[in-house]
Design a protein around this nucleic acid. Sequence first.
DNA 1: TCTTGACCTCAAGTCGACTTGAACTGGCAC
DNA 2: GTGCCAGTTCAAGTCGACTTGAGGTCAAGA
Lengths: 143, 143
Amino acid sequence: MNALDITEVARRSGVPASTLRFYEEKGLIASVGRRGLRRLFDADVLERLALIAMGRAAGFSLEEIARMFAPDGRPRIDRRMLSAKAEQLDKTIRELSAMRDGLRHAAACPAASHMECPTFRRLLRGAASGATGARSRKRLPPR
Amino acid sequence: MNALDITEVARRSGVPASTLRFYEEKGLIASVGRRGLRRLFDADVLERLALIAMGRAAGFSLEEIARMFAPDGRPRIDRRMLSAKAEQLDKTIRELSAMRDGLRHAAACPAASHMECPTFRRLLRGAASGATGARSRKRLPPR
DNA sequence: TCTTGACCTCAAGTCGACTTGAACTGGCAC
DNA sequence: GTGCCAGTTCAAGTCGACTTGAGGTCAAGA
């Protein structure tokens, strides 16, 4: 049989056992049975976990990812959803690029105080208007 | 006098009053006094808020931002810190770009199931190895 | 003077994605 | 047969950045 122990799944996927239980509870993955108390997973859970990891990396929430699987468990990926997320990523990328360039400039800028550097002030205005305008929530990967 | 009411600061900066109080508590901004119970802020708090917004947009935590101000309140921006953050942003940007391209491909891909699309599978392996290898925590801006 | 209501404080709640802790169980080696 | 210990459950805790709620105060307008 190719049923995998939770520890084995954790080892092969790099996803902690606690997270696997959590994902199961959320309906993101399913165990195929038990040996005593112990969960057994089919080997294809690894592919599923990869799919989940990809979704997370692309910025999908677990909620959204869960919705990408049909009740039968097969992936049901909505192409429009993918395009939309791609657009969103693109926007984020553009913003981050501007920010990166600004940071680089500020890091190299010879002005005594950053406040006297025109580039820095321009960046600042951009950020301020970002905060000011719409109720935009922004978050970036920590560390 | 150019002292601003908290509501005025909120209006001009787009930052909710509750957040202003929270930032004050965290030492990110300071009020210059009170009129009765009401906080009064100096107009330069607006610039400070812009600085904070920029820091947030660049992915700095409030902690880190707080450390960017000297005890006297003047910005004390560490150029190496800026470069480091720029590098980090650059890495994020590269990852997101790959993800975006992958999503676009998947959205346009004619394969019946995404699992049969080589590009999609490649993306998947990338994401899986990301999750697998180091304990990398990833998060992207929601909505 | 009295009322109003915006602002105040402090504690607690929220959100997402997990992790941690306490108490328990059961297959397997001895 | 029995003890070990990796696995199990369920509740609660964590983290960051705020928001919300209850109950209180006070400057200003009628």
